[in-house]
Write a protein that binds this DNA or RNA. Structure first.
Lengths: 331, 331
DNA sequence: CTGAAAGCGCTAACAC
DNA sequence: GTGTTAGCGCTTTCAG
């Protein structure tokens, strides 16, 4: 800034003012400064401004995996909501591991974000402490934590799974299997599985058809392999609930390879409303958790908590995922 | 740090030393400091350290879309490569728009990243200038720019498309179509299309079968719709090269819905080796551009350019995408 | 091994 | 509308 100031013949303070808006600077001076900036190729140093103002414009975001269309949609909704207010997401991923989450969260907090949006409500004790005492808004998403740290934008994964079971039973299925990941870091997947088990038991049906397809994130291929195993051991299965649409698509393709008719012999349902589930043949019955909306709502809460936006202050939002009945598991 | 220092009875300087490693501090003092840090819930402020050291530990990264498994893989490869050296990716996306890229790049440079990794080699003039004069390593990826700004980790998209044409012709196809996005922000898609056109012309065949499926990113659904249009206007088409596997999967499903045999009547090829192409029925012939490897190589170049890693200094890397022949377009 | 002084590049607060 | 002073929370440098 000093270089610019010298060149234009003003003080650095005037340069500082000219580069922001909402500050009063002589119009000619401002133009001259802007021109000098371009000529010298000066790029504003926000690290210094951040330190002085004690404001970074960062919003920390953690997701389990960057390679997941659902979480990517949430990040997109969040980013787009923040962009208008000059906030920048600072993204990290945990690989579905709360130990890694702890490390990541600490790393992110060192950057002094103004808010932090995390996926899920399960954290290590130290991670909880870090979040609680960070002195910034904390938003947990994609879940309904029993003891929220701060704000929540989520839904019941268990209820969503139960919706699928209900639908399948209503449409006449009785021997329903669940294909998901092994108990591990994917707490939302585990919750779906728990919801499945509860719903099946509630109806007095068997809960023997539970297949672990591998560690999260479970791939299409793993879904296919698990389905083959399932159908070898329990060939009379008449419906499969999958932990995600990716697994469901794997199951669908495996049925096609095995010559099993979907939905004639077996109905298949997934979770997430991924694009592949909309367009596969047949398209896959699923639950839409509205991932982008989760991100948008989180952004709204952040903006309100930071006083950047006025309006009805939502502390938290419980979303209602929607059942999408398609040909893989029709009515 | 002062609070900690007071509590332990040392100077802030000693605290600063104790919290870093490779510095000499009395072992007991260090333990006492570490304990005080936990008790007081102190979290190191890296914004201040960054300013003082003129090092942020950020590596800026721009991708066209966050919701794309290929670019996500590149980011993963990059992140994983950087993590070991304490560097943190600072990610932004451009929505396939070089104007947005310019804005994003400037925004990112204000954060004083130590290197910047961008997707593609097409930029606005001002964006080029910003990158050139940023004084940090610049890595362009996913393309082979005619005038690179700095480092490059990429491949020829045109050659990749030509490989597919060659394969299809070798396997007896003659009336080959291309389904892709409209001329616009997706320069890699445009390059594939150009490579397709050149390869088809080289063999003296028709280049009338070019279908614009919409703006990038082209979805599975848009691929399906475009394929329907194509087959209505040119029902004698015997092969389709798609700008991505997602489009190819859309094409495949549309053929299934229309009762067109794949590969009997029409062969389908995609690009990207997305998971859906591995497991669909039939699996889809494609090109694997090794997205994660692109990220890893970019990370290696960044680390070497910053002097964090010694070894054979690769200035740039030209990768060779691999043709994967599958049942949708067999030999 | 430890401490004191200075300063990274910017801006709040106060003068004029 | 513009300039001066001080300081954000760290770390480099130098002294002990």
């Amino acid at each position: 800034m000093q270089d610019i100031a010298r060149k234009v013949g003003v003080s650095p303070m005037t340069v500082s003012r000219a580069l922001r808006d909402g500050t009063s600077v002589n119009a000619q001076t401002r133009d001259a400064i802007r021109q000098a900036v371009e000529e010298l190729g000066y790029v504003f140093d926000s690290t210094a401004a951040n330190l002085r103002q004690q404001r970074t414009g960062f919003v920390a975001v953690t997701i389990p995996s960057i390679n997941n269309a659902n979480f990517a949609d949430t990040v997109r909704g969040l980013s787009d909501g923040l962009k208008a207010h000059g906030l920048q997401p600072l993204l990290g991923y945990t690989d579905y591991d709360i130990e890694q989450e702890e490390i990541l969260v600490e790393q992110l907090l060192r950057r002094r974000p103004e808010a932090i949006v995390v996926t899920g409500g399960q954290h290590t004790p130290r991670c909880r402490r870090l979040l609680q005492s960070a002195g910034i808004p904390v938003i947990e998403t994609w879940d309904l934590p029993s003891e929220p740290i701060g704000h929540v934008v989520g839904f019941s994964n268990a209820d969503a799974a139960a919706m699928l079971v209900d639908h399948l039973v209503t449409s006449g299925r009785r021997r329903i299997a669940f294909v998901g990941g092994e108990a591990g870091g994917d707490f939302r997947g585990a919750d779906r599985r728990a919801g499945f088990v509860a719903a099946v038991k509630r109806r007095g049906m068997d809960v023997t058809r539970l297949v672990d397809a591998g560690k999260a994130p479970v791939s299409m291929r793993e879904g296919a392999i698990a389905t083959r195993t399932l159908l070898e051991y329990a060939p009379d299965t008449d419906a499969i609930v999958c932990v995600s649409d990716l697994v469901a698509f794997g199951a669908l393709t495996e049925c096609q390879r095995m010559g099993v008719d979907v939905p004639g012999q077996i109905a298949i349902a997934g979770f997430g409303n991924y694009e592949v589930a909309q367009i596969s043949v047949p398209p896959i019955t699923t639950i839409d958790p509205f991932p982008e909306r989760i991100g948008r709502q989180a952004a709204d809460i952040v903006l309100q908590a930071l006083g950047l936006e006025t309006g009805a202050a939502a502390w938290s939002a419980r979303l209602e995922p929607q059942l999408l009945v398609r040909a893989s598991a029709p009515r």
